[in-house]
């Protein structure tokens, strides 16, 4: 029980770190860290056997190693400016993140969950992860940060599914993981095309598109 609480607090901190980080490289490392923490959650909830172990290993391979590697590879090939460029500032984003946490704590008290389904703090941690991912998508200028934001939001949705995996939905989780893997792959290719067409991955430049 103590282990899962520490993991969830660490996940909440990682979610806030997404919003405060100014370097793309650090952002990639944080994605890897969140992947590793996520891989540990099925073990902490269900123990190291059966489906939990398979899920944990798959998450470690895909979210802890695969995605960060893909993102880092794209980053090094695109040769972009290594600084995260925000539409709205880092401190404001952090405030938004804390606001998201408060909102999810409030929401948890309002929603009628079956008792004992979620360990304490799991729902707020997952929802904050979705919020900070969406904030990254909306409030940052580079297409690469939007991929990372999408990953963060997906991680939140995955976290919501972890307690249910013990009840047999582990194959569903695994198939979603595969889908996300393909999505990130496609996004990497799309980023290369964006970079080729606009000579930058600044999404602001899309405004110049015409029929």
């Amino acid at each position: 029980m103590a282990a899962i609480q520490s993991l969830l607090v660490a996940l909440v901190v990682v979610n806030l770190a997404y919003l405060a980080v100014t370097r793309l490289k650090t952002l990639t490392r944080i994605t890897a860290l969140q992947g590793v923490l996520l891989a540990a959650t099925p073990l902490a909830i269900a123990g190291p056997h059966g489906h939990g172990l398979i899920l944990s290993l798959a998450v470690l391979a895909i979210k802890g190693i695969g995605f960060p590697w893909l993102v880092a590879r794209t980053l090094s090939r695109l040769e972009v400016n290594p600084v995260v460029e925000p539409y709205f500032g880092f401190n404001m984003s952090l405030l938004a993140g804390v606001g998201g946490l408060l909102f999810s704590l409030w929401l948890e008290s309002r929603l009628p969950f079956p008792p004992g389904l979620f360990p304490p703090l799991l729902f707020p941690a997952a929802l904050t992860s979705i919020f900070s991912g969406l904030t990254l998508v909306v409030a940052r200028r580079k297409a690469l940060t939007q991929v990372i934001g999408y990953l963060a939001a997906e991680n939140g949705i995955f976290l919501l599914g972890v307690p249910l995996a013990a009840q047999g939905s582990v194959w569903l989780e695994l198939s979603v993981l595969l889908d996300v893997f393909v999505a990130v792959f496609v996004m990497g290719i799309a980023l290369h095309h964006i970079n080729k067409t606009f000579e930058s991955i600044d999404v602001g430049r899309f405004c110049s598109l015409r029929d």
């Binding site: 405060a20 880092f90 952090l94 804390v98 946490l101 704590l105």
Partner: peptide, 22 residues
């Protein structure tokens, strides 16, 4: 420096919120 202190502030708010929530 304001960013460092802003992050510290967010961490402090997180700590307070979670302590109160428990």
């Amino acid at each position: 420096v304001p960013r460092l202190l802003g992050s510290a502030g967010a961490l402090a708010a997180l700590s307070l919120v979670l302590t109160v929530w428990r």
